[in-house]
Amino acid sequence: MHAGSAALKTAAMPVSSAVIDAKALVRCALFAALIAALGLLPPIPVPVLPVPVTAQTLGVMLAGAVLGPRRGALAVVLFLGVVAVGFPLLAGGRGGLGAFFAPSAGFLLGWVPGAFVVGALAVGATSLLRLIAACLTGGIGVVYLVGIPWMAAVADLSLAQASVASLAFVPGDILKAVLAALAARAVHRGYPALGA
């Protein structure tokens, strides 16, 4: 140890922040992987639409509600990045850049601001109702706000037609928002959150 105690002192200070940074990084990756693993649960196909109801949006809402706005959105970006490279992690084994050209791709891209809004509204929320409201606003409102115009543009539908087509997903998404809020509250109670 030729550096001596001075080096030890300077090294001791940033350790805690380095640990928090590393934990945050790994947690983002964990929630990205969680979104992927939720895609392994059997999807429920919806008649007419090429997109099945999956548990993956549950993971998106959880990422926002548990990790907070910035890290939640980052986890979703990570997940979509790994999918774009070609890892088949979307529900039903879809993957690759091709998935981002489908009519439903807007919903995938909407996950990023969606997770952010869920996180932003859920920060400091203790009541279940506020958590549910956060998941509904971000996980459904924001996601559909991106997904519906995208679908209308790609599939040559009017906004009204695209909205009607998306209605089939609303009941499932409401259920997922409630589940995500319940789970996020339980996780917050059962495990300490990271500092800033």
């Binding site: 940074d21 990084l25 790994v26 983002c28 990756a29 964990l30 990205a32 992987a33 969680l34 992927a36 693993a37 392994l40 990570l78 997940f79 990045g81 790994v82 890892f87 992690l89």
Partner: peptide
Amino acid sequence: SCAFAVVFTIRLVPFVA
């Protein structure tokens, strides 16, 4: 950090499952 995050994600998928 970005590279680590991507590799962790890929590696954590089978672990989470």
